[in-house]
Amino acid sequence: MSLINRREIPIAIGVAACTLVIASYFTDNASLASASGSLQLWGIIIAGFATLLGLFSYVAYNGRQIVKKRSVYSGVAVASALGTIAIGLALSPSSSQYSWLTSNILTPLSMSVGSFIGFFIVSAAFRTFRARSLEAGIVLAAAAMIMLKNMPVGEYLLPGVLPLGNWLNDIVSLGGNRGFTIAFAVGAIIAGVRQILGFERGRVAK
């Protein structure tokens, strides 16, 4: 096996990088902090280059769609991406032209997609939130309390819902949420160790 394909090399790099960053967190050593800072900067630079990789893939895929005449929208997608980049590079992202693009195209589009959530919540809640059993009924009642609590007008519609909703949120939900978060964090650390040591390899067969 060639040196470049050996599994031990990426594992060694991963372990060394992790150890350095963790050591800098647990000590006040200036050299370690500086080395850890540099390593984190490298991470930022790599992330920047990865964005380029994404852009190439995006343009390549949509380019193929255009060539195969599969979708006219691919043309719109590529033109939008490249046009935005060109204006940003040529005139700077703080230019009025770039601001016009964002204010008049990107903002309304982003808000529209974001607003779908409001619509989808209704259909999902209508379909799912049904008192099929005692437990489901309890969940339903608690959810209704929290929704009323969060409504600016909730306290006026159902007096007392604010303290009750806060109690549900601050005590019942928070306790469960913390347990959930801690369990997930422990699982994430252990998964991270397995990943760095090369045990998790996305195996394909049982």
């Binding site: 994430a188 650390i189 990943q195 998790e200 390899r201 996305g202 195996r203 394909v204 067969a205």
Partner: peptide, 16 residues
């Protein structure tokens, strides 16, 4: 990162 990687661990199985 751990969650993306956990997802990718299942991707291999699904792809197979």
């Amino acid at each position: 990162a751990p969650y993306h990687l956990a997802g990718l661990n299942t991707l291999g199985y699904v792809a197979n």
